[in-house]
Design a protein around this nucleic acid. Structure first.
Lengths: 228, 228
DNA sequence: GGGCTAAACCTGCCTGACAAGCTAGACAAA
DNA sequence: TTTGTCTAGCTTGTCAGGCAGGTTTAGCCC
């Protein structure tokens, strides 16, 4: 299942062309408002059909790297890449994990200020669910993800919550969650639960600084658990 | 120039189809690993050609919402939207601006801990450039953007810096920068410079908490200046 | 020179076709 | 009946050619 998704599929021709077009934009060789070669010319130089070129340009367009105007051509956007933020390219693991720690700390600090009774209830329920999952012999991975999402929800900022989920997913991938199976033997799942409890306590006491610290401690411990 | 980019272009058919396909995915009506209708069927139901459907699916693919496999079909991705983070959809302005404040505060706090002499020099140079631009009768908009980017650079986390620039651009759009022209009359550009100076001082004294506060004060003042 | 027109580009979109991967059912063999 | 093979029919990936509509440009006429 997950193994299959790790296999690097051979990039389609459209992706190949898209990357080839993206490179000079990122490198600055093609500057904003510069005109790209015509679809016909690109098809010829890359040895593909126009349909493939159009698909490649469609991808760059949706990411905000290029803009097209009928009859005029395709142009490098004024603010290249302004539509979408990606972490898959040139994202150092250390920096990614630090970004996650910052975001989650922000979530916790806001949650400490704004949480409702319902938020607290959800946090405790999420922690209980993880405890049950571990007791049942599982790793509680889904429940851990759920806990962090509930924490982000308590910050009452949907944009922040969405980004926390986005960064969290990438961070977990970077940490190679397969190694989580080691955790059980080392009996460290209790540690995680204690740290989650500390976060809940800080949030419940409406102490932003303490909540921030509790999250930093939790994620730093997580990195240590994974030997990072 | 900038006015033109404000005009809402009529969405292309490919975009229309892409949005139509995205909706049930975001709403959860189509769950991960569900199979989408075939390109032929989608073309028929939406009254477009297969090429348009392919362009729409290409966009969803690059954002990580769907995955396709030759001979099998197109499927909702295991983690929909995992490739790209977007702010243009369903992003409340208030939440967006708060997100920006959090990120920039994180940048300042890290900068306070990690900045080099060169970073400090760059910060002061950026502030001086803005002062010069204002003295020359301009608004110093580009210089302001540059100042905030230099601050993010001083945090020494490229992923964080890229995201700060991403959020900053969207936040500035949300603030309707056209209104910046009012600033000059109100002689509030001096305020901005003073606030930038406070940030530099906090960073230079290696005080993360003070740097965080200075940024929060700066951005909150900016919102006030824009009547938000 | 100034204004108009037509030709030559460009992107947006369509049609029809073939190649390659995959699936299910028919069908023959044990 | 069970097993193995094969084929027909689906899917996506790619190609070629064409038309419609917008834009530029060069040439022509006044």
């Amino acid at each position: 299942m997950t193994v299959l998704s790790d296999i690097r599929l051979p990039a389609s021709r459209a992706e190949t062309v898209a990357d080839a077009l993206l490179q000079p934009i990122l490198a600055g060789a093609w500057r904003p408002h510069d005109r790209l070669p015509s679809e016909h010319a690109l098809a010829e130089t890359h040895g593909v059909s126009r349909a493939v070129v159009r698909e490649a340009i469609a991808r760059l367009k949706s990411d905000g790297y290029v803009e097209t105007r009928q009859g005029k051509g395709a142009f490098v956007a004024a603010a290249p890449g302004g539509n979408a933020f990606r972490l898959d390219m040139a994202a150092d693991d250390d920096h990614l994990l630090e970004l996650r720690m910052l975001i989650e700390a922000d979530c916790a600090a806001l949650a400490a200020e704004r949480h409702t009774e319902r938020d607290l209830h959800n946090l405790r329920a999420a922690q209980a669910a993880m405890r049950d999952a571990v007791a049942a012999g599982g790793l509680g991975l889904a429940e851990d993800i759920r806990f962090h999402d509930v924490l982000a929800e308590a910050a009452h900022n949907p944009a922040l919550r969405r980004f926390a989920a986005f960064v969290g997913r990438h961070a977990r991938e970077a940490m190679q969650l397969a190694r989580l199976s080691q955790l059980r033997e080392q009996n460290r799942l209790a540690e995680i639960e204690a740290e989650h409890g500390a976060i809940i306590a800080a949030v419940a006491s409406r102490d932003p600084a303490a909540a921030r610290t509790a999250v930093q401690n939790h994620i730093a411990s997580g990195l240590r658990r994974h030997g990072l």
